[in-house]
């Protein structure tokens, strides 16, 4: 069953083609990595899937419906550089977001899963970068979502936190969830994902398994990535990751 699908999606900002005919689909239970250089269109893809922006043309479907609205009750999302209210406590924030879902994991349980139990009464302002990312994961997991959309989720995390993070993510998949995540970390993508979608210049330039991408380990992943994205990228490499 297809959980999400983007067909010939274009998104244009003044002077910039963020997406230039993107085609991606993800089936239930898959872990799919979205790889690409800065400006490739990864964040735009997530914003489209969450209904935060609309495509200039093309079709975006999540669970067969247009993104946004009630579909969000089936999604847990981690946005890149997501803003959080400084003065709320970790526990308060998790409880609040959990209340938006039809059912939610108990706050203590989700805090334990994301190693935030000892930070439960801390305010968001006092968290480190890694703790903040774990809080965003807690917010994404609290509603027992069927789909996790994670935009560079492990940025600012240390090695142990990354490990815990992916343990939790895999546990979600084992329970029937689907994950689409963006990353710059090729090793992480290869280690975690069932499938890797490489995006450059707003288009898909490769959509295959990590193993096939490197010809069963014969090629260096980084070299393959650079070759793919250098050939196809027409987007700006600097600045905002549109």
């Amino acid at each position: 069953m297809t959980v999400l699908e983007l067909r010939d999606v274009r998104k244009t900002y003044p002077g910039v083609d963020a997406l230039a005919g993107l085609d991606v689909s993800v089936a239930r239970g898959e872990i799919v990595a979205l790889l690409g250089p800065n400006g490739a269109g990864k964040t735009t893809t997530f914003e489209l899937l969450l209904g935060l922006i609309r495509p200039t043309s093309g079709d975006v479907r999540v669970f067969g419906q247009e993104p946004g609205g009630r579909v969000r009750t089936r999604i847990g999302a981690m946005l890149q550089a997501a803003g959080l209210p400084d003065q709320l406590q970790v526990r308060e924030l998790v409880r609040l977001i959990g209340r938006g879902y039809p059912t939610a994991v108990r706050v203590d349980e989700v805090l334990a899963r994301t190693s935030l139990t000892k930070r439960a009464t801390r305010t968001v302002k006092s968290l480190s970068g890694g703790e903040r990312q774990r809080l965003l994961l807690a917010l994404a997991l609290v509603g027992t979502p069927e789909l996790l959309l994670l935009d560079e989720p492990t940025a600012a995390m240390d090695v142990a936190s990354r490990r815990t993070f992916w343990e939790q993510a895999r546990a979600s998949v084992a329970d029937g969830a689907t994950i689409l995540f963006a990353t710059h970390d090729l090793t992480e993508a290869a280690a975690v994902a069932d499938r890797v979608v490489v995006v450059a210049g707003g288009r898909v330039v490769a959509d295959t398994t990590p193993d096939a991408l490197t010809h069963h380990g014969d090629d260096d992943l980084e070299e393959v990535f650079l070759a793919l994205t250098n050939e196809s990228s027409t987007a700006a490499d600097e600045g905002d990751d549109r």
């Binding site: 989700v110 334990a112 994301t114 190693s115 139990t117 142990a160 815990t164 939790q168 895999r170 329970d175």
Partner: peptide
């Protein structure tokens, strides 16, 4: 950092 057991989020 606290070590945690993976728990299925979807479990009842």
């Amino acid at each position: 950092m606290t070590t945690t057991r993976p728990t299925k989020p979807g479990s009842a």
